[in-house]
Design a protein around this nucleic acid. Structure first.
Lengths: 330, 330
DNA sequence: TATTGATGTGTAACCGGTACCACATATTAT
DNA sequence: ATAATATGTGGTACCGGTTACACATCAATA
């Protein structure tokens, strides 16, 4: 593999000048530049990323930390991040943490050590203090999916509360008379916001009861159990808003087992809008613009890496109601 | 961040000796080692991966190239690879190629440039020649999920044909009288092998017809269309073996739409055994030991990186029949 | 006793870039 | 005309490790 010195020798200029051409920094004569570029092509020069990184420049690598790669939401986000990253010349290291704080912190050490240029984090438990471990090294961080209060980093999330309102109103409009909400873990702001949307729409309804809200992990199994529990408590339910699509799928299973027909007897809607819809009937959902979120997160992170100022705000994205069979009026 | 020279100074030894301690290479006095280790702890020394990589050692980074992160099979595999990688002190770069040869080749350049230590590839179209581009740089490669003939690299796959046999026999045992197979893309050896298994069991049945095998992409949509097509051709079907679980989910949708009840009127089985089962009824499947495969691939790759010999064989894994509702005898 | 080999340690040259500093020369301002 | 500044280029010390080589000791073998 050709080095910068090879190019220097071949072109007759010094490594310094070649470096300037590569980085488009400093002054370089027009003709000099041409000659060096020609020489670079001749020997198929590709700058060695490792050396560049060691010399203080960036490593052209970012890390994407996600809590659960088995939840289709995150692969979709990963895909977006990766696409955007590639376009910007970045490579992404995948960090699946299985929701373990220990793994997350362990990754921090490794990643700092590898001189990554930035991080995109989706986490359910990281605190501000933890984040600072990375930020204090000058590594830019953005978060997706879930926000922490006062984190001081840009956050890219959907308008979860609006989405919750969208879902709840939709169920009411479809004629539901008693709606339950299976929320995601309450430690998550995202979950709470969705529940807040639900409450805003339903709390003043005559049938409303706090016990209509139950919590579940973000997976099929949890949704199933929560739905069972809800049905025991409220056999007269005719609508369910699930905190995400996996929960919804689990709920659907429970309903099927209890011989409650969806959507005829009970209507169901999820959240996220994950691409693959495997269920029968297809489940209505409040779709997040997952791809947009991932892409935007990466682009903003890129700006931060470049040293451009990025406001540590909460960047919110509109959700879209996607009506499918599971909530259609009979 | 403390460097090796800091440790040297503090301990009173030279950088060479410190390096020897770090790498457990060459001779080091017992007491010397203790003192240096103590000094390392004192300044919280962590070797700089970038420098180490530049100096010729490995980068402790491997790449995982997958064709479709949206297919749950691959996130599951990724999880296994990542777990194993982390245990071995490696970090994994995620390369989702969306099944595009161009992206794959583009990644090759980038990865070589980053001095990655090895690659785990799942690809539907890479040829031997392409692979050699990486291998000629001395970068070890292993493949998973799909094998190429004469690739010269270790391949980690399930016994697809056996799995096909398992699925087909199972349907027959459940009393099916006419079974179709929705195969994955034929360009894939894995797909062909599964189909081969199907043929071995069914080709000599009186009802067998070549038109009972149709192809589909590995996704829900493709499965849906293929199933529709099959039903048009063979309205009397009472069993379907789908090339993977996504296809099966699509097929289930089609069956539902055509008002064919699963499993009462028609039985269905998939392949892969992806963790989340969202469907009602749950779909029987031939489960691949995805986690094992990913883990084993990583471990063998590690051996290759260490310079140990690894036979360029096809390492095959047993599949397991997982019977769920969709194929139970009525 | 002389020779050999095992053991322990230090010096310094790499790896392949980046960037500071020095030194020209050309242009512009005073 | 002279000073000041802009432009173009080269030398080389870094970044933080690894490792070949040199040079000691000291025990074992001939």
């Amino acid at each position: 593999m050709a080095t910068i010195r090879d190019v220097a020798k071949l072109s007759g200029y010094s490594v310094a000048t070649v470096s300037r051409v590569i980085n488009k920094s400093g002054y370089v004569g027009k003709e000099t530049e041409q000659r060096i570029i020609k020489a670079m092509e001749e020997v198929q020069f590709k700058p060695n990323m490792t050396a560049r990184s060691l010399a203080g420049k960036n490593s052209s690598t970012i890390a994407l930390m996600i809590p659960d790669i088995l939840n289709p939401f995150f692969p979709e986000a990963a895909r977006a991040v990766e696409d955007a990253a590639q376009e910007l010349g970045y490579t992404v290291i995948l960090c699946n943490t299985d929701n373990s704080l220990e793994k997350e912190l362990n990754y921090f050490d490794v990643l700092i050590n590898k001189k990554i240029d930035g991080m995109i984090i989706a986490s359910y438990q990281l605190t501000n203090e933890h984040l600072n471990r990375v930020r204090s090294k000058g590594i830019p961080v953005v978060m997706i999916d879930n926000q922490m209060i006062t984190s001081g980093v840009p956050v890219f999330v959907s308008k979860n509360k609006d989405g919750g309102i969208l879902a709840s109103k939709h169920l009411l409009e479809q004629g539901c008379k008693k709606i339950a909400h299976i929320s995601g873990p309450y430690q998550l702001q995202a979950s709470r916001d969705r529940a807040l949307g639900f409450e805003e729409v339903c709390a003043n309804q005559p049938w409303f009861l706090p016990s209509l809200i139950v919590q579940s992990e973000f997976n099929v199994q949890g949704g199933y159990q929560a739905m069972m529990q809800l049905l025991d408590r409220h056999p007269d339910l005719d609508g369910v808003f699930a905190g995400n699509d996996l929960i919804a799928a689990g709920a659907l299973k429970a309903l099927y087992e209890r011989k409650l027909y969806v959507p005829d007897q009970i209507k169901l809607i999820g959240f996220d809008g994950i691409a693959m819809d495997m269920t029968v009937p297809p489940i209505s959902t409040v779709a997040q613009p997952i791809y947009e979120i991932g892409k935007s997160a990466m682009q903003h992170l890129y700006k931060m890496i470049q040293g451009e100022p990025v406001e540590a705000a909460i960047y919110e994205f509109d959700t879209v109601l996607k009506v499918k069979e599971s909530s259609k009026q009979h």
